[in-house]
Amino acid sequence: MTELATYNFAYLDEQTKRMIRRAILKAIAIPGYQVPFASREMPMPYGWGTGGVQVTAAVIGPNDTLKVIDQGADDTTNAVSIRAFFQKVSNVRVTTKTTEATIIQTRHRIPETALQAGQTLVYQVPIPEPLRFLEPRETETRKMHALEEYGLMHVKLYEDIARHGRIATTYAYPVKVEGRYVMDPSPTPKFDNPKMHQSPALQLFGAGREKRIYAIPPYTEVVSLDFEDHPFEIQTFSEPCALCGAKGSYLDEVILDDKGGSMFVCSDTDFCEDRQAEGHRGHLSANPAEAAE
């Protein structure tokens, strides 16, 4: 592409991209800190990933390959429409393969396949403030971040244990980044929290409605909060994926009929398809000839 063609590339005008890039740079410099930015109206409703789309549009270039996932899947509404949007406005290559992508925009999941150096993971964030439902005043939560007063976060975990006998928070599980800021990892399951720790990939978080950007630079310490006698644990599943037989991946329960029948399948569709292509089979695999083996 000529240089002119990359001017006002990927939907946003140059001034807006500059503003967002400055916020991103600041966010990378202060891991876990929520940087305010002048979020723009995007051609989609709030809650559909306007923050993630703006971050992606600000960092994407003609040589990038984009993957968009929604709840782990490449073929759900949100993923399909955002992928189509970027194909239309930037004409970049798109893929569903985690390993081929340079930028992965995600909602609610981190891919099962380990990310590599040079890849960028862009999260769509609905509520960036981890203290939101504990302390209603935004002025106060900002002060609490500034003064590192995070006792309240543990009050929430205490309540969990007191009520349920264990830490019952399963998603948006608070983490401490580089020993300083407590951060909301967006509504990813806590299953994905360990993947953020020391990840070689750059992780960017965009909250469009709340007008905040935050980041985890590559190889950053990310620790999930817990108690000494109730350590952090991720979800485990009693059965393997029904399609690819994977154990230790994050599974979705899919209802099969109205008689209570259901199956558990990998929420990361790309991971599941890769495994099936490699010949792995679960007990509900489509191909009966191979399943019989």
Binding site: G151, L152, I161, F227, D229, H230
Partner: peptide, 10 residues
């Protein structure tokens, strides 16, 4: 208050 001053044992 205990958690605010760093107590982390439930």
């Amino acid at each position: 208050r205990l958690m605010a001053v760093g107590d982390r044992h439930y």
